[in-house]
Structure formats: C-alpha cells, structure tokens
C-alpha cells in the first residue's frame, strides 16, 4: 500500500515538477541523492589535484592564468554541490569524513596521473567534455537545488572544455615532439573518460531507481554514446589518431560503433587500486589538517569581534 505522501511525491515526479528541500520525500530518494550529489562534489574537489599538479609548470603565463581560473572554478563547483547536498540534512563535515574514510566515492578519472602538460589539455577537453555531457542531462534532475546547481555549473564549464581543446590544438599543430605528446595524452585519457559514465546500465546498482525517480535522466550507456559520437570529429580536426581502432559509423543506428571498455580496470580503480587513489586522499587529508589553523583563525576573529561589539555596546 502506498501512503498518500508517497503518492503525492510520485505525482510530482511524473508531472516533471521539482522536489524542493522541505518537501516530503522517500528516505531512499534522499539517500540516493546524498550519495550522488556528494560523490559529484567530491569529484570536483579531488579533480583539482591532477591539474593543480601543473599550475607551477604551465608553459606560459597565459596558460597558467587560465589553468588557475579553471581549478578555482572546480573549487566553486564543489561548494555549490556541497551546499545543495546540505539541504538534504547531511553536514559538510560528515561528507568530508565519508570522502576521507572511503565511504563515499569520487569519479575514478581523477586517480590517473597527469604525466605531461598535454594531459592538462586532454583533461579539459575530454574529462570536462564528458562531465558536461552528464551535467547537461542533470539540469533536468528532479531535485530542485541539484538542478539549479547544474545549470550554473554548465554555464561556467564550457570554457574548461574549450581551453583544453585549444591547448591540445596548439600541441597537435606544433613540433613532432609536441604532436606525439598530444597523441599520448589522448591515448591515455580517452578510455578513462569513457568510463566516467559508469558501468553498463545492466551492471549499474543505482541506475534503475534513479531513473524512476528522475534523479538520472539518461542512462550511462546513452550518455557515453553521445560523448563517443561528438568526440570523433574533434579528434579528426586535431589531426590525431583515434585511440579506438574499431570506431566505425553505423548508418542503421545513427551512431558510432566502438570497442568495449576494459571493465576490470574500471572496477579495480573504483575499488581503490588506481595509480593515484591513496595519494589523492592522503593529499586531501593533509590539506584539510594543514588548513585547520585557518578555520580556527576565522572562529577566533569572529569571537574577538563579538566581544568588542559587546564592550562598545556596554
């Protein structure tokens, strides 16, 4: 038997109405959202590390300023998402603890190392490109604060992809060595970027319920296909070789056919065995602990100000 509250909730979902923080919602919907939004927030925050690795070594002042701006945006996006998640009744410190203890995950892509400058270009172009495909779809998610956050993030994110592509283009049109560096970055980041969309729909633990509740609007495989399709021409324009030798236009489907992914690698990285999993979390913990004095200083300053105001008032 469905309770009237649940009926009302499902009525809103099927009428494409948004669910807002103070509305009644099933406990599992709330839990599912917290899992997804916090994972998304953690990805933005951990995602600063691979690119941050190159800020001091960017090849020109222009590239450095651009990269700084991009990484700064990621911090902002993390903030929007943590705030949206907090409207569901979980605190920021709980989320950070879940990230640091491994109870919450983040996108597996950020466990790959950034070995060369071309990796920064490949990340902007492919990783942010894949994230945009996913986030455009999430602008229609059923939870109001999440949907509005996505709209803002998508607006800001288009520069991320374009600066990455521009950097790749400069390398691809450069010397033989630079072109080889671009090709190598493409070869290494193409497959993990495809894995960002998650497992096949048939193997995705949360997909069905999330689709039913319209938390997710398109399936992992459909979003991945969209990304595969849009990337083919972008690789051609760069004049690089497509990493997937099986890529082939399928007239009947109206899509490109492609090779299956290395799912053993995917699960291995998800389960903590990527190149950088331990390093990413250790760095986050260290940065958090080293930042303790800043948070303490803010509290101390506020207390001092309050005491002064009280003294003046007396």
């Amino acid at each position: 038997m469905t309770i009237p509250q649940e009926e009302n909730f499902m009525r809103k979902i099927s009428a494409e109405e948004k669910i807002e923080p103070k509305d009644w919602m099933p406990a599992a919907y709330r839990k599912n959202l917290i899992r997804q939004i916090s994972q998304h927030a953690h990805s933005e925050i951990i995602g600063m590390q691979p690119e941050g690795n190159w800020i001091t070594r960017a090849p020109s002042l222009r590239r450095k300023a651009v990269l700084l701006s991009k990484v700064q945006d990621e911090a902002g996006h993390g903030l929007y998402l943590y705030s949206a998640c907090e409207t569901l009744g979980i605190s920021r410190s709980e989320m950070i603890e879940q990230l640091q203890t491994g109870a919450a995950k983040y996108s597996s892509i950020f466990n790959y190392p950034t070995l060369t400058w071309a990796d920064v270009g490949a990340i902007g172009w492919l990783v942010d490109g894949a994230a945009i495909v996913n986030q455009v779809s999430l602008q229609r998610t059923s939870y109001g604060p999440y949907a509005r956050g996505m709209i803002r993030i998508c607006k800001e994110e288009s520069f991320h992809q374009r600066q990455g592509y521009e950097a790749m283009l400069a390398l691809a049109k450069g010397s033989e060595g630079q072109k080889a560096m671009a090709q190598d970055a493409l070869d290494r980041f193409y497959w993990p970027a495809l894995m960002m969309f998650g497992p096949h729909d048939s193997d995705s633990a949360h997909s069905q319920k999330s689709m039913e509740w319209k938390i997710k609007r398109e399936t992992n495989d459909d979003l991945r296909q969209k990304f595969i399709d849009q990337t083919v021409q972008q690789i051609e324009v760069l004049g690089l070789e497509h990493p997937d030798k099986a890529i082939k236009w399928n007239e009947e489907r109206g899509h490109f056919d492609s090779s299956d992914l290395n799912w053993d690698e995917f699960w291995s990285v998800i389960n903590g065995n990527g190149h950088c999993n331990r390093q990413r979390i250790e760095h986050h913990v260290a940065a958090h602990e080293e930042g303790e004095w800043v948070r303490d200083a803010i509290t101390a300053y506020n207390e001092k100000k309050r005491a002064k105001q009280a003294q003046n008032a007396a």
Binding site: S69, F159, R162, Y165, E166, L169, V237
Partner: peptide
C-alpha cells in the same frame, strides 16, 4: 577575459 568560453577561438567544425 579567459574565464569566458568565447575567449577561445576554435576551428569552425568543432
């Protein structure tokens, strides 16, 4: 200005 998407000039097809 580089925070804006329009700052980056890319080839027409892409």
């Amino acid at each position: 200005p580089y925070r804006h998407a329009t700052y980056y000039v890319l080839p027409d097809p892409v």
